[in-house]
Nucleic acid binder design. Sequence first.
DNA 1: GTGCAGAAATGCAATGGATGCAAACTTGCA
DNA 2: TGCAAGTTTGCATCCATTGCATTTCTGCAC
Lengths: 198, 198
Amino acid sequence: MSVRDRKRARTREALVAAAADLFERRGYERTTVADIAAAADIGTRTFFSYFASKEELLFPETDARLRAALKVIDEREPDEEPATVLLRALRRVGDDSDDLVSPLAALRLRLVLEVPAVRGRALQIQADAQKEIARHLAAAYPDRLDEVTAAALVGAFVGAVQGALQALFDREGRPEDAAMLQDAVRRATAVALAPWTT
Amino acid sequence: MSVRDRKRARTREALVAAAADLFERRGYERTTVADIAAAADIGTRTFFSYFASKEELLFPETDARLRAALKVIDEREPDEEPATVLLRALRRVGDDSDDLVSPLAALRLRLVLEVPAVRGRALQIQADAQKEIARHLAAAYPDRLDEVTAAALVGAFVGAVQGALQALFDREGRPEDAAMLQDAVRRATAVALAPWTT
DNA sequence: GTGCAGAAATGCAATGGATGCAAACTTGCA
DNA sequence: TGCAAGTTTGCATCCATTGCATTTCTGCAC
């Protein structure tokens, strides 16, 4: 990795860190892109060569989670059911991603629930990921699943988990700590996916 | 309904019509709110007392569809399964809504697929509707469904349908024929939701 | 018919995200 | 050392959105 690339990566991280700090302290809406850029010592214009929009800042590593899910599918046992593999893939994404610990993750969760623009972006990212997973799954089971059925299956699983999670948050408020959150995710998936697992 | 209200409703429709026309001809991005307001003979500022944002213009009757779904739940037979009722509610929304015929609906579908901002808004509206439906369903079956399970159920159903639809569009482009489309969705969701419906 | 209170429309100014453009820099490599 | 490619930046501009103050209705009371 060249000096150039490393510097760029460092600046990128600085931007995320600065933004997280500012969002935390002043709130999302009352932090301007100019503020963030200044805090990371770059020009306002330059910000947009790192992130396409203000929201994007909150989802810096979407690809990683998606790749993890695809990997689970690729490494399936020869005779596993599609639903079983998919189930494992979703559990993996929910569990091991650093997503529940990193300071950014907690902030992101809060903002997804509070700020419409952020929620909209999150839903879009999720929809795109679903599409990708469905494609992979269909390719993995060419004679059992066509693209449409695979998409329906993935949509059902993800939709169930997301619905359950949302309901949990509505009922219990935002989780205080990562452990509670993880527990909530587990309970939600257990409930949501029970019909497929029994 | 007073004169005032009727005039307001007429202006509102004029805005939607004007916007549909402009979006159709010039595209969404290259139509400004000022253009739309001018075409409907109102001041730019006034636009925002009718619609909270430019996107909102494309979803003028969300409530109606939601209410239709809730109505199906309210009018269920005494001993129907939750999944059965829910399935019927979704079919109702997909079927009888003018959604595949009205000129606005076709435009909306295209823009949802093409314009990120519009897609984001559509996903948010859907998520909100899901939440509402889940609440209703849980209330309708107090001893069979808690809020979280109901939300998971609704999420699974809606997710399956949406996933299937998305895949169909990706594969075949925009649908020529509503009947074929509906059939494909039914088959796909049947597979995805088999665990719930049996 | 006149006048008033509340609702609606409007103009104006300002904020803030986003983009195009061209000039000033840096870095990697020949 | 010096050029080509990749970066950074300032500047101007567009546009959605909002706050504020003003003006224009509309419904109703008298």
